[in-house]
């Protein structure tokens, strides 16, 4: 029997919803794929037709949250690249908030700079999408020439560092993450400004 695109989407949805609930309530580590299968009401093998790992489910949730609403563009142009980057990441954090507590595993496995070395490209789309936005912002501030591959790698490492801190930030309303983000971007923008090729 052929599975219609509609049915596929419905199954996929059921998996994502069940996983999201379980990750939130029981935690990422404690949740098994078997739990997800059971909660989604699907056959055991079906899940792997859609997602090869638990991490892939999180990636899909993250991608989906980013796609739900377009990132807000500031009504007034931020005064600096530093502020524009802050605005970009802060908006992402708002969208990622429902997934905050179980983001760490994918930071370690699929988004980390080590993932590429392992040949795991499941986080590739997220990474390139985010970096494309960064390059676009740099262009607006005429700093794109400074965004060499090395600079982008440095940025990505900082970005992941902020995300990692955020997933575990126990300060009230994760206010320390805002301070860290502000400081990190300030450091990056200052460094970028001083390394701009002539």
């Amino acid at each position: 029997m052929r599975v219609t695109a509609e049915a596929k989407e419905s199954t996929r949805r059921a998996i994502l919803d069940a996983a999201q609930t379980l990750f939130r309530t029981a935690g990422f580590e404690a949740t098994t794929t078997r739990d997800v299968v059971k909660a989604a009401g699907i056959a055991t093998g079906t899940l792997f037709n859609y997602f090869s790992t638990k991490e892939a489910i999180v990636i899909a949730l993250v991608v989906e949250s980013q796609a739900l609403k377009p990132l807000r563009t500031a009504d007034a142009r931020p005064a600096s690249l530093e502020e524009a980057l802050f605005s970009l990441v802060a908006a992402e954090l708002r969208q990622l908030k429902p997934h905050r507590t179980y983001l760490m595993p994918i930071l370690e496995s699929t988004l980390s700079p080590l993932a590429e070395a392992r040949g795991d490209d499941s986080g590739q789309a997220l990474r390139s999408d985010h970096l494309a936005r960064v390059v676009e912002l740099a262009r607006q501030y005429e700093l794109e020439a400074a965004l060499t591959p090395v600079a982008l790698q440095i940025y990505w490492t900082l970005y992941l560092g902020v995300l990692a801190f955020w997933t575990n930030d126990r300060s009230p309303k994760q206010v320390e993450t805002l301070a860290l983000l502000d400081q990190s971007l300030s450091m990056f923008a200052n460094w970028l400004g001083s390394h701009e090729p002539d």
Partner: peptide, 19 residues
């Protein structure tokens, strides 16, 4: 404190953007 940070602080605390 730049505007984007400020807006984030307000959103964090009060649940919406200052505007």
């Amino acid at each position: 404190m730049h505007w984007s940070l400020l807006r984030e602080m307000v959103h964090n605390e009060l649940g919406d953007d200052p505007e």
